[in-house]
Amino acid sequence: MSIQHFRVALIPFFAAFCLPVFAHPETLVKVKDAEDQLGARVGYIELDLNSGKILESFRPEERFPMMSTFKVLLCGAVLSRVDAGQEQLGRRIHYSQNDLVEYSPVTEKHLTDGMTVRELCSAAITMSDNTAANLLLTTIGGPKELTAFLHNMGDHVTRLDRWEPELNEAIPNDERDTTMPAAMATTLRKLLTGELLTLASRQQLIDWMEADKVAGPLLRSALPAGWFIADKSGAGERGSRGIIAALGPDGKPSRIVVIYTTGSQATMDERNRQIAEIGASLIKHW
């Protein structure tokens, strides 16, 4: 067993022997301040990774656009098919120029040779490549099948209805392509620590998230040296922004954090800054 596999296998073990965790309302004060600064709703939840206990939450059962955070769930569904012998990570998928959609920095470079399922998941999570996500959605049967996968996990809230990039439209009061912070946090925890996926697939999923290259201005910008984070960000229309993450000190994750916002007129930089400040408060009061 590799060191990384050992780390993920012992996530519940280490967490069980940690000192009790206590909620700190100071972080919620910052979440509410972010709402004021952005002029928009902000949803927040913080779960203990081992027990699933909610440590703090704000608007945990209000719907927010998922945006690209759905790509972690998508690759979880792909990995479940791999575990069941219905898919192979090494299978190569070929596609054409007509398949390319807006923001496809990886797939646009491989029109000639195609990409493997493993490479597509890596591109979808680490670079948020939209064509990679659409190609992977095709392998599982489309958005409705991802929703069905989530329902089978016990998540009857999260739903995907459309493809990239239309799913980022974020129309107010439109339930399409949305989740709730509580539902997303619980589902992410199941994917990373539950028995739904094999140990190898859980490790692969967290490795992809740990290698995320496009979430630097968010929670990662607030992390002290030595902290662990595996995350996936999302951005959408109407001032929408979000991030889902597993993080913790001492090089291992111990909490799940989900943050979503929508309806702001603020710039992307300002949305990023507010999420980073929430992260800084979380870490300060850990």
Rank of each mutant, 00 (worst) to 15 (best):
M1F: 02
M1T: 01
M1Y: 01
I3K: 14
Q4V: 08
H5R: 08
F6Y: 10
F6H: 08
F6I: 10
R7T: 15
R7P: 10
V8I: 13
P12H: 13
F13Y: 10
F13C: 10
F14D: 00
A15R: 01
F17V: 15
F17Y: 11
P20A: 05
V21A: 14
F22R: 10
F22T: 06
A23K: 05
H24E: 12
E26G: 12
E26T: 13
T27L: 08
T27D: 04
L28S: 08
K30H: 08
K30P: 02
K30S: 10
D33P: 01
D33I: 14
D33A: 15
D33R: 15
D33C: 14
A34I: 10
L38I: 10
L38T: 09
L38K: 06
G39I: 09
A40D: 05
A40K: 03
A40M: 09
R41Y: 11
R41C: 07
Y44A: 02
E46K: 10
L47G: 03
D48R: 04
D48V: 05
D48F: 03
L49F: 15
N50T: 14
G52C: 04
K53V: 13
I54E: 11
L55I: 13
L55M: 15
L55A: 06
E56P: 00
S57K: 12
F58E: 05
R59W: 04
R59K: 09
E61R: 13
E62Q: 08
E62K: 06
R63T: 09
F64W: 03
P65M: 02
P65T: 03
M66S: 04
M66Y: 04
M66E: 02
M67W: 01
M67S: 09
M67Y: 02
S68K: 00
T69R: 00
F70D: 01
K71Y: 00
V72T: 09
V72F: 03
L73E: 03
L73G: 06
L74C: 05
L74E: 04
L74G: 02
C75P: 01
G76S: 12
V78S: 03
V78L: 09
L79I: 05
S80V: 11
S80H: 14
R81I: 06
V82Q: 06
V82N: 06
D83E: 10
A84V: 12
A84Q: 14
A84H: 12
G85E: 11
G85W: 06
Q86Y: 12
Q86G: 10
L89H: 05
L89R: 03
G90R: 10
R91C: 04
R92K: 12
I93P: 02
H94K: 14
S96M: 10
S96K: 10
S96D: 12
Q97H: 14
D99N: 10
L100W: 05
V101D: 14
V101I: 10
E102M: 12
E102D: 15
Y103V: 05
S104F: 02
V106K: 07
T107D: 01
E108I: 11
E108R: 11
K109P: 07
L111S: 08
T112C: 12
M115T: 04
M115C: 07
T116M: 06
T116R: 06
V117R: 01
V117T: 07
V117Y: 03
E119Y: 03
E119A: 10
L120W: 00
C121I: 05
S122T: 12
S122H: 12
A124G: 07
A124S: 10
I125Y: 00
T126E: 11
M127R: 09
S128A: 00
N130R: 00
N130M: 01
A133E: 00
A133C: 05
N134S: 04
N134F: 03
L135V: 10
L136N: 01
T138D: 12
T138W: 10
T139R: 11
T139Q: 13
I140S: 05
G141V: 04
G141E: 06
G141K: 07
G142T: 07
G142I: 01
P143F: 03
P143G: 06
P143I: 05
P143L: 04
K144D: 14
E145D: 11
E145I: 10
L146M: 13
L146S: 01
T147Q: 09
A148Q: 14
F149G: 04
H151K: 14
N152F: 12
N152D: 15
G154F: 04
H156I: 12
R159D: 06
L160V: 14
D161H: 07
W163I: 10
P165I: 08
P165Q: 06
P165C: 09
L167A: 08
L167V: 14
E169W: 14
A170L: 08
A170N: 09
A170C: 13
I171D: 13
I171W: 14
I171G: 12
P172L: 12
P172K: 10
P172N: 09
N173C: 13
D174Y: 03
E175H: 14
E175Y: 13
E175N: 13
R176K: 15
R176Q: 14
R176E: 07
R176P: 04
R176L: 08
D177E: 01
D177C: 03
D177Q: 01
D177A: 02
T178C: 07
T178V: 05
T179P: 00
T179G: 01
P181K: 00
A182L: 15
A182G: 13
A183Q: 12
A183C: 08
A183S: 11
M184Q: 04
M184S: 03
M184F: 09
A185T: 03
T186E: 15
T186Y: 13
T186H: 13
T187C: 09
T187F: 06
L188Y: 08
L188I: 13
R189P: 02
R189G: 12
K190F: 08
L191N: 02
L191R: 00
L191E: 03
L192I: 15
T193D: 09
T193G: 15
L196I: 15
L196F: 12
L199P: 15
A200Q: 15
A200Y: 13
R202L: 05
Q204T: 14
L205S: 01
L205F: 05
I206F: 13
I206G: 10
D207S: 15
D207R: 10
D207H: 09
W208I: 03
W208T: 03
M209V: 01
A211Y: 09
A211Q: 14
D212C: 04
K213H: 12
K213R: 12
V214R: 06
P217M: 14
L218D: 03
L219D: 04
R220Q: 04
S221D: 09
S221H: 12
A222M: 12
L223N: 03
P224A: 05
G226T: 12
F228H: 06
F228E: 04
I229A: 05
I229T: 02
A230F: 02
D231S: 05
K232F: 00
S233E: 01
S233Q: 01
G234M: 05
A235Y: 02
A235P: 00
G236I: 02
E237H: 12
G239T: 02
G239Y: 02
S240Q: 07
S240Y: 03
G242T: 02
G242I: 00
G242E: 01
I243C: 08
I243D: 02
A245F: 03
A245Q: 01
P249V: 06
D250Y: 12
D250K: 14
K252I: 11
K252Y: 12
P253V: 09
R255I: 06
R255T: 05
I256E: 01
I256K: 00
V257Y: 05
I259A: 03
Y260T: 03
Y260K: 00
Y260W: 02
T262I: 09
T262P: 01
G263H: 07
G263F: 04
Q265F: 14
Q265H: 14
Q265S: 15
Q265N: 10
Q265P: 11
A266H: 10
T267F: 07
T267A: 13
E270N: 09
E270H: 10
R271P: 05
N272Y: 02
R273Y: 12
Q274S: 10
Q274H: 12
I275M: 11
E277P: 02
E277T: 13
E277I: 13
E277L: 12
A280R: 14
A280N: 13
A280M: 15
S281C: 12
S281K: 14
I283T: 09
I283V: 12
K284Y: 15
K284I: 11
H285V: 09
H285E: 10
H285D: 07
H285Y: 14
W286I: 04
W286D: 02
W286K: 02
W286N: 03
